[in-house]
């Protein structure tokens, strides 16, 4: 029987061209999955965390025509809920079998959703992750079954009842980064598999620095550091936490120092979460990453 999917994305001051690029991939992706008999109804829910609505009536009319045959629901939040809370808010009203959590700075290949749905047909799978191009994430995966430590929130298909069962993203403790690692590990703790689907291709608009690295903003630096500290704390690795804190104290840049200060504040105020029981079964800390990397 064909699955149903709520496709959900969260905007934050994205350029209209970027939103158009995102939207132009939605209908081909849905059409392909329907053509393969894998998909029934599909809803597109766009949550807007921007300072002012990014989409007016005219834009919505145009975008609706662009995604003809797909129900479009646009919600202006009036506040920056950020990634996790934004997606939780959109998922709260979902009635579909799966949530496709997807970034707006992407462009999915037409067959992407079909590959994810094929894989997710196995009820043991909680999260199926797409492969990002041009810069593929280096975390390792089982070459035969696809199992991996965690799935990037850039584009994942999550079984809705699993999402609900584990409580969705945790925006209080992971406002912007590592929330996907945290969600993946809680899904695995709940007994579901997290798998990588490399044939599910999605373009993610990352740029390459002149040194070959991905270009990272100060905001990303802050949140990734904060998320790293929080993961080590929550998943029972005080040794890793001390390592990160020590490194920041000696070598950290300003955003990283701010992240450490924020974590310390929460810890001192008692608002940091308790470590999760059994976390060691799923948490992987390898050379400063959250999975063994292929390179």
């Amino acid at each position: 029987m064909a699955a149903t999917v709520q496709i959900q994305t969260v905007l934050y001051n994205n350029a209209i061209g970027e939103i158009w690029r995102f939207m132009q991939a939605i209908k081909p992706m849905v059409d392909h999955a329907r053509g393969e008999g894998l998909l029934g109804s599909a809803h597109l829910v766009v949550g807007d965390c921007s300072n002012a609505p990014r989409l007016g009536d005219a834009d919505l009319g145009d975008l609706g025509r662009c995604a003809e045959g797909i129900e479009l629901d646009y919600r202006f939040f009036g506040a920056n809920l950020m990634f996790g809370r934004g997606h939780n808010t959109l998922a709260a009203s979902a009635t579909d079998e799966h949530l496709l959590v997807i970034n707006p700075d992407t462009h999915a290949a037409p067959a992407m959703l079909s590959h994810l749905l094929c894989t997710a047909a196995d009820p043991a799978i909680g999260i199926a992750e797409a492969r990002q191009i041009p810069l593929e994430h280096p975390k390792s995966y089982d070459p035969w079954a696809g199992d991996t430590s965690w799935a990037s929130g850039c584009c994942v298909l999550i079984r809705e009842r699993v999402f609900r069962q584990v409580g969705g993203f945790d925006p209080d403790n992971f406002p912007l980064y590592c929330e996907d690692v945290d969600l993946s590990w809680r899904v695995r703790l709940a007994g579901f598999r997290v798998v990588y689907v490399p044939k599910a291709t999605i373009f993610h608009d990352k740029r390459i620095s002149n040194g070959g690295a991905i270009v990272v903003s100060d905001t990303e630096r802050y949140h990734s550091t904060f998320g790293g500290l929080m993961l080590a704390h929550r998943y029972g690795r005080p040794d890793i936490h001390r390592q990160i804190a020590g490194w920041i104290a000696h070598h950290g840049e300003e955003p990283q120092r701010r992240a450490l200060a924020e974590f310390m504040r929460r810890q001192n105020e008692g608002t940091a979460p308790d470590p999760l029981p059994g976390a060691e079964r799923v948490a992987e800390f390898v050379n400063g990453e959250y999975a063994l990397h292929r390179f």
Binding site: E136, P143, Y196, V197, K199, G212, R294
Partner: peptide, 17 residues
């Protein structure tokens, strides 16, 4: 080239300029 049914090839090293 990669063994296994999921993908015929994959990156084996980091992006370098």
């Amino acid at each position: 080239v990669r063994t296994g049914p999921l993908m015929p090839y994959e990156p084996t090293g980091p992006v370098v300029v």
